[in-house]
Amino acid sequence: MKALIAIGMVMMAFCAFPLSVFAQDNMPPAPYAYRQLDDPQQERKARELMETLRCLTCQSQSIADSDAPMAGDMRHQVRTRIAAGQEPAQIRQWLMDRYGDYISYTPRVNSVTWPLFAIPAIVLLLAGLAVWRRIGRRQNYKGDE
């Protein structure tokens, strides 16, 4: 039991460092994993898209911020597809068809996510109301009663 705890503790200590540990594959990264597109306009599009796609083998990082090989392969996919003239929305859809909403950091309004958008709207309304009630109705305030 003690040994088990000990192993657990070492693993924990290890995990406390925020750099992911990757199984070592010896292949060089995909051509467009660490290379930008020559057209700055296209690279900008690709970069903006990559920043909003989740790396699936890492913990909570976008594929634009990860050294995981699979993130590199996804960057390669995004860049080559952008270079081939695809729109970012198309590529996002292509990935969502494979991995579901989870891969996209940009939630879309649908039957599952609508509260994410409805609640801030309600909060905005309530906030406006609170400010108006707290302040607005005392517009004619003349002094302490």
Binding site: E51, T52, R54, S62, G100, D101, Y102, I103, S104, Y105, T106, P107, V112, T113, L116
Partner: peptide, 8 residues
């Protein structure tokens, strides 16, 4: 599973 990130 959904993700909520910087674009939100």
């Amino acid at each position: 599973r959904v993700s909520v990130g910087p674009p939100y």
